[in-house]
Amino acid sequence: MNLQTVNANVSRVPFFRFLNFEVQSLDSLHVAAEMTFESRHIGNPVMEHYHGGIIASFMEATAAIAVHPDFAEVPAKPINLTVDYLRPAVKGSLYARANVTRKGKRIASVSVISWQTAPEKPIAEGLYHFLLV
């Protein structure tokens, strides 16, 4: 699966265009992506912080791509998620890295971390489950 094909798939999903991110690298178990800041991502208009739901959405998107990078039309089916918010995300790019912890026949478990300045200073961490059937 090459980057160009994956990003072409991403650009066909309306909500992924709304998020405005690009996959930077991927292999069979990992995906790294960068999301560009947009005013529609703001949750706290005074501080201009990202909305927590946008952070969770971006992490869900990268997790889904890690599980199923060659999705033809619709990304992998999410079951549920938990997110820990560790720091506010300010104006600027947000990065996410998804790591498929386990991929069985029916269920996949994916952990995702997002950051701005350095991965050692995470903005949020998430765990996502997907249904593969």
Partner: peptide, 22 residues
């Protein structure tokens, strides 16, 4: 804008998460 499919009838889970948070 919040859909994942070409026909735009299936909402992305993330927007539901964002809605709950708000």
């Amino acid at each position: 804008d919040f859909c994942v499919d070409r026909d735009q009838t299936l909402l992305h889970g993330g927007i539901l998460t964002a809605l709950l948070d708000s």
